[in-house]
Design a protein around this nucleic acid. Structure first.
Lengths: 130, 130
DNA sequence: TTAACTGCAAATCCTTTGCAAATCA
DNA sequence: TGATTTGCAAAGGATTTGCAGTTAA
């Protein structure tokens, strides 16, 4: 059993959940459920794909990880919880995190201009890495 | 046969394709493939869902319509071809087009700041319609 | 003890595809 | 006529779910 049993608020501890969270956090990519499954299997060979999906959803709902879906329609997960955006290279398909804070007052301007009450936004940039 | 046979460049005319395009253009929502299918069926009862998908993909690849994918993972289509963004109401799930041009030089600033060569971007705002 | 969690497998949902028939040019 | 496009049905991939057994608290 691992040293640090990081519990999700109001949830029971489970080794599988901890591993899913660890894998997503340590990934330097933006992994799919299937990739997470393969990684977790290295530590817990009897884990099931269903369990991985259940925990990814739970962790995302609790805000411990983020869902990322791009134009290809496959759900990906991101261990970063800070607000950030993405750059997607059209050639390689690689996804880069971008901590880009150019439009500080974007939300305010948007709400003022449109009359909506937006509370968050996300930007995806597409192009080539050069 | 309709009056105006709008042909897609380098493609043969087909009644089914024309109807798919018409339905997407006239939709004031951001319809899913299934919704488009149901609409086209009113005019062409024997159309198949496969044909609708094939034409949606073809039209999107040709740039006559746009693909829109949000966090729910279902592909939607948009008859607007001008660059624009979306506001999604968390309560109703409704998707609004936003022609919002606040950060004119966003791409330039982004490229200068990150070193990438982004050619386009899209913004999704989330919140409530109030 | 018992509610939460799991593995397994089947089900579901969305989308694509193979093929023979139909159709546009 | 010949290459596209279609309808149909089956296959595909990603994700969810039902259930009986397991486990944390």
């Amino acid at each position: 059993m691992p040293e640090t049993r990081e519990k999700v608020a109001g949830r029971r501890y489970s080794r599988q959940r901890e591993e899913v969270l660890r894998v997503v956090r340590n990934a330097n990519s933006h992994p799919t459920a299937d990739w997470v499954y393969e990684q977790v299997r290295k530590t817990l060979p009897r884990v099931s794909l269903g369990t991985v999906y259940r925990n990814l959803n739970l962790l995302a709902d609790e805000g411990l990880i983020q869902r990322v879906i791009l134009d290809d329609g496959v759900m990906r997960y991101d261990g970063k919880t800070r607000a950030h955006h993405h750059f997607i290279c059209s050639k390689t398909g690689k996804i880069y995190d971008v901590e880009f804070n150019l439009c500080e007052d974007l939300l305010e301007k948007f709400n003022a201009q449109t009359g909506f009450k937006a509370t968050r936004y996300k930007i995806e940039f597409y192009g080539s890495e050069e």
